[in-house]
């Protein structure tokens, strides 16, 4: 049995994340949504979601003294960052006139430009909202039974730009070619929402529940 903790720091609804994980976890697994550092320290797998603005996310994490707990989990055990839970792993976000983030990975989070157009000269709207293709650039155990270029659900206006491009595990295209997944050792972080990405999203979550943290 494995204890899977979803980190609750007051940013957005975590019910969808926990229900999706429960849907694919083994019967013997236990899924908890918690803001208690002890729960996260005790967990075997940690999911770090997040929604909303970067400044609020950092503020709420720090107010609950969860920033160090999250970094500790990312150093030790299978760890999945989702959406803002990916972005704030970097050094700095340009959202809210600039926010210092967790700095696990050197790099910046930048906004999509407002005047992007596609090949047919139609406007590319911001947020980037909907189902886009994900092109995996690394082999990874979390990709078992997920086809290259399959679509995942995105909703975001900012994207991660790590200084070390070897961290990039997948890319997607929206006006620019941007990093939509980062992976290193026991950490996978994705910009899209696996919990809202139908069968492929559930498969990724299932693979995560079974993952021992080896890349």
């Amino acid at each position: 049995m494995s204890l899977i903790a979803v980190v609750d720091y007051g940013m957005g609804n975590l019910r969808s994340v926990s229900k999706a994980i429960e849907h694919v976890a083994k019967n013997s697994d236990r899924v908890i949504v918690s803001s208690n550092p002890a729960d996260i320290n005790n967990a075997d797998h940690v999911v770090f979601p997040g929604q909303g603005a970067a400044r609020d996310c950092m503020h709420e994490l720090q107010a609950r003294k969860l920033d160090a707990v999250v970094l500790k989990a990312a150093a030790e055990k299978p760890f999945l960052g989702i959406c803002m839970g990916m972005q704030i792993l970097l050094t700095h976000s340009e959202e809210n006139q600039g926010v210092e983030c967790l700095d696990l990975y050197p790099g910046n989070v930048r906004r999509f430009k407002d005047n992007m157009h596609d090949s047919e000269d139609l406007k590319l709207k911001v947020p980037h909202m909907g189902w886009n293709r994900v092109r995996w650039t690394q082999e990874h155990r979390l990709l078992e039974n997920i086809a290259q270029d399959s679509r995942f659900y995105f909703v975001h206006s900012y994207f991660a730009e790590p200084s070390d491009s070897s961290l990039i595990a997948a890319r997607s295209d929206y006006g620019i070619d941007f990093a939509c997944a980062l992976a290193k050792d026991n950490v996978m972080a994705v910009q899209f929402h696996p919990e809202k990405s139908a069968a492929d999203g559930l498969q990724l979550l299932k693979n995560f529940c079974h993952w021992n943290g080896q890349p």
């Binding site: 909907g130 293709r133 295209d173 929206y174």
Partner: peptide, 8 residues
């Protein structure tokens, strides 16, 4: 362009 148009 690879963002899909959605049917809702």
């Amino acid at each position: 362009m690879s963002l899909a148009k959605r049917i809702i």
